[in-house]
Design a protein around this nucleic acid. Structure first.
Lengths: 275, 275
DNA sequence: CAGTGGTCTAGACCACCCT
DNA sequence: GGGTGGTCTAGACCACTGA
C-alpha cells in the first residue's frame, strides 16, 4: 500500500471517492448552507488529480442535491432538500422526530393463513402462513392509527420468536430482510365501528387509509394496512412539473439488463382513479 | 455555421446535447425497454466527438432514469420509471390519461379579497385581490371533486379576461407563469353538507382533501383546495428507504447562491402530525 | 481583469461480461 | 479475447461573474 499522503477519509481505491468523501465531510462538519466549497482547480491541486476527476466527485454530490454549481461564481452547499419523497420509516421513528412519545397496544400477534388479498400483495400463495400483527399506535397517549401487518413466515420464520417486535422494520433488518423501498396508496374512508372505537373517534368518522407494500432486496417482505385519525394526521407531498415524458416505444422481448425476474411495474403516475 | 454533417436533431451548440437528443429520439422512436443503445465508442465515431462527451450525454439520461449502464455489457433502456413523484398536472390531463372524459361545472369565477389563509399561502397581503374559481370536476359525467382556486390578480391581471379558463395551469403558462413545482397536503375529512350534495355522496361522507400550493419561477402562483370522493380517488406514493442523510452544519449568514429571497423551507419529511 | 464553472479532446488502463 | 462501461490524465478554450 504505497499510498502516503492520502486523505484520512480515503475510501476505497477510486480517487474521485476520496474527493467526494472529503467534500461530504466538509459539508457535514464545517460548511453552512450557501457556503462555497473549494474551487475545482484548488481540489485538483490538493488531491493531485485531474480536473475531470474532481468534477466527477462534485457531480455526484450535485446529483444528490447536496451541492449546486453556479457558473462564474463557484460551487455552494445547497439549501437542505425537504426530503423529496416520503420516507420508509417506522411509526416510532416518525413520532420521535416530532418529539412525541410513541406507544403501542398489541391486539393480536399470531400466524394466520394469507387471504387472497394479502397473498397477492406479498406474491405468495393464498393460504400460506403469514405473521400477523394487529396494533393500535398512539402518540403522547392518544390513539393515532390502527395498523395491521403481514409478513410471510417462509421469508423470516423466527420473526416473532421473541414476541411481537416493537418495530417490524427493525426486526426485518435484524433478520436480513432490510426494507429498501415501498409503495403506498392513500385514500380517505369512513371508519368502521371497530376503528371508531379503537381510535376514540367522535363525530368525525373520516380516516386516512394507507395500504403499503414494503420491499427488501428479494421482493415484497411486508404488507400493511393503517387507518389514521383524520384530525391528527396528514401527508405532505411534493409535486414535480411534468417534463416532456421520454418514454420508450414498448416492452422488449429481451430480458431486463438486471435479472429482475419480477414483472416490470406498469406506468404509474401517482394518482389513481378507482371506478 | 460551418457545421456540415450534424445530425438533424442538433440542438443548440453543445455537442453533448446533439448526442443526448439523438439518444432521446432513439429511445422514444425505436428502442424498447431492455434494448441496448449503441456503445460509447460507436457514438464517439458516429458523432466525431471524444468519449467524455458521449459519456456526458449518456450520464444525463442515466440521471433522468431513462437509461441504465451495466458494466461489461452495455447501456440499456431502463424499465419505465413509475414516476417517482406525483405530477403537477391539471385535472383534465389526469383524467385523459385514464381514458375518462373530464367535464367541469363552474360555480363561481370572480375577483375576491384574499383571506388570511389564502394570503399566507400565496405570500401576499390579506385583502389583496385574487382571482377565484370554484368548480365541480367530473369524470365520465360523475362528480369527482370540488375545487377552489386562488391566483393573485397582481401576478396575472388578465387571467380570466376570456372567462374562466378550462385549465388554470394552461392559462398560467400562457401568461408567463408556468407552474414549475408544487406541494400538497393530503388529509381525510368528513364532507360538509355542501360537498356531499355537490359530489352526490351517499352514506359515505369521507373525502380526501388536498391543499396545494403551486409555484412558478417567481414564487407561489396559485393556491387551491380540492375535495375528492373517497370512493373514486386514491393516491399512490412511493417510499424510499431513509439514507444516512448528509446535512450541512447550519444556515450560513450568506445569501443563497441564487437570490431566492423567499425563506428557505424547513426540513420536511413527508408526513405531518397535526396536534 | 482574474477566477469560476462548462465544455471538449485524444488518448490510457482497468474491471467486468460473454463467448 | 474482444467488447463493454469505469476511471483517469493533462491539457485546452469558452461563458460567466465579480472586483
Amino acid at each position: 500500500m504505497g499510498r502516503a499522503q492520502q486523505d484520512a477519509v480515503s475510501s476505497g481505491s477510486h480517487k474521485y471517492l476520496a474527493v467526494r468523501d472529503y467534500l461530504t465531510n466538509l459539508v457535514v462538519r464545517e460548511l453552512k448552507v450557501g457556503d462555497a466549497i473549494p474551487s475545482e482547480r484548488t481540489l485538483t491541486e490538493r488531491f493531485g488529480v485531474s480536473r475531470m476527476t474532481v468534477r466527477q466527485a462534485v457531480a455526484a454530490l450535485v446529483t444528490e442535491g447536496v451541492l449546486e454549481r453556479v457558473q462564474g461564481r463557484g460551487t455552494f452547499v445547497a439549501p437542505q432538500r425537504m426530503d423529496f419523497e416520503l420516507r420508509l420509516t417506522t411509526f416510532g421513528e416518525e413520532m420521535q422526530r416530532r418529539g412525541m412519545e410513541p406507544t403501542t397496544t398489541v391486539l393480536a400477534s399470531q400466524t394466520v393463513a394469507a387471504t387472497p388479498e394479502v397473498a397477492t400483495e406479498l406474491e405468495i400463495a393464498p393460504g400460506d402462513d403469514v405473521h400477523f400483527l394487529y396494533r393500535v399506535r398512539s402518540a403522547d397517549g392518544a390513539p393515532m392509527c390502527i395498523e395491521q401487518v403481514w409478513v410471510p413466515v417462509a421469508l423470516v420464520p423466527p420473526l416473532f420468536d421473541d414476541g411481537p417486535p416493537a418495530s417490524v422494520y427493525e426486526a426485518l433488518r435484524a433478520h436480513g430482510q432490510a426494507p429498501v423501498w415501498g409503495e403506498q396508496t392513500l385514500a380517505a374512508a369512513d371508519a368502521t365501528d371497530a376503528e371508531a372505537s379503537l381510535l376514540g373517534l367522535g363525530r368525525s368518522r373520516a380516516v386516512l387509509r394507507a395500504r403499503r407494500r414494503t420491499f427488501s432486496d428479494t421482493g415484497p417482505c411486508m404488507y400493511s394496512h393503517a387507518s389514521y385519525r383524520s384530525d391528527r394526521y396528514s401527508v405532505w407531498v411534493p409535486l414535480r412539473a411534468p417534463g416532456p415524458a421520454i418514454v420508450p416505444r414498448g416492452r422488449s422481448a429481451r430480458r431486463d439488463p438486471h435479472d429482475t425476474s419480477a414483472p416490470v411495474a406498469g406506468a404509474h403516475d401517482g394518482t389513481t382513479t378507482e371506478v
